[in-house]
Amino acid sequence: MIKVDHLSKSFGKIKAVDHISFEVKEQENLILLGTSGSGKTTTLKMINRLIEPTGGKVFINGENILDQSPEVLRRGIGYVLQNNGLFPHYTVAANIAIVPQLLKWDKKRIEHRVSELLEKLHLDKTYLNVYPNELSGGQQQRVGLARALVADPPVLLMDEPFGALDNITRSKIHAEFKALDELKRKTIIMVTHDVQEAFELGDRICLMHKGKIIQNGTPTELLFRPANSFVKDFLKEQRLQLEFKAIRLNDIAPLPPEGGAFDLHGERVDAGVALWSVLEQFKFTKAEGLSIINHQNKKIGSISFEELMAAFYQYKKHQPHE
C-alpha cells in the first residue's frame, strides 16, 4: 500500500533521514520508533509532502506521490499532529469539518459525519460549538483524531499523537484506539518514542536511529530476534512488560485444531490478543483460568492462570535470544 524507497532528507549537513526503505501493507499499523532526533517526523512528513525529500521515492498504491498535486494528495491522507494543531479560531465542529469543506461536501453530510465521529470518539455533542482551548488535552487529541478521520482517508499518519497526554489518559485512549472500528480499516504509520506504546499499538515496528532504520519487524521479532545490540539495549527497560505485550494468546495456548474460542468468565477473548490484555482482564474477574469453548458454547477445556504463565516461560525459552 505504502512503499518508501531509499528515502533521504538532509538539512544542510545533517542527514535527518538516510536512505530508508520500508513497506506498509494495507490495514497494517506501522510504528516508527526512535529517540528524539532520529528522523521519525521527517520521514512521516515526506509521505504527505510537508517536506520534499532530497532523494528517494514514496509510492502510495503504486503511484508516486510526486505525480499528484500536494493538496489533492494531502486531502486523502489523515494527519494527526503531536500538539494537535487544532485551529483556535474554529469551533470543534468546524475543526472536524475542515477537510469535508475543502472537498465541498454538502452541509447535511458534513453534520451527519461530524456527529457520528463525536459519538465514536466518546465526545459529548455539547462540545460541538466549543473552542479547542476550552477542552482538556485528551479531548483535544480526540478532536484531532476526528479531524484526520472525517473524510475516511485510507491512510493515516500520526506524529506522537498521544505524546502530550498523562499516563492515565493515554492508556485510556490506547484502549479506545484499539477498539475503534474506523481505524481497523486504515493503513497507519504512527511515530512514537515510547516503546510501550509501540508494542501495544503496532503490528510492525521500524526502530530508527540517526536517520537510519536499525530493524524493521514485528514486536516479537524485535524482542526475540534483535538485529544488533542497539535494538536489544533499546528494549531492555521493562522488558517483561514488553514481552507480555508482544506475545499473543494463541502463540502460547493453541486452540484445538477443530476450532473453538477462549472465554473468560463469560466474556469472549480474541485469540490474537496480547497476553498483556488477557492479564489485565484477569485482574477484573475472579476467574481462575480461561475456558476453551466450542461452537456450541460448550466448555471443552481450560487453562489456569498458572498454566498460562508456565506456557509463557516455555515460549520464551524457545526463542533464540533467551
Binding site: V72, L73, R74, Y79, N83, N84, G85, F87, L102
Partner: peptide
C-alpha cells in the same frame, strides 16, 4: 502557531486558503 499552519497545509489547504 507553526503547528496550526502545518495542520492547515497537511489537511490539503492551498497557500491562499
Amino acid at each position: 502557531d507553526a503547528a496550526v499552519k502545518e495542520a492547515a497545509v497537511a489537511m490539503g489547504m492551498n497557500k491562499w486558503q
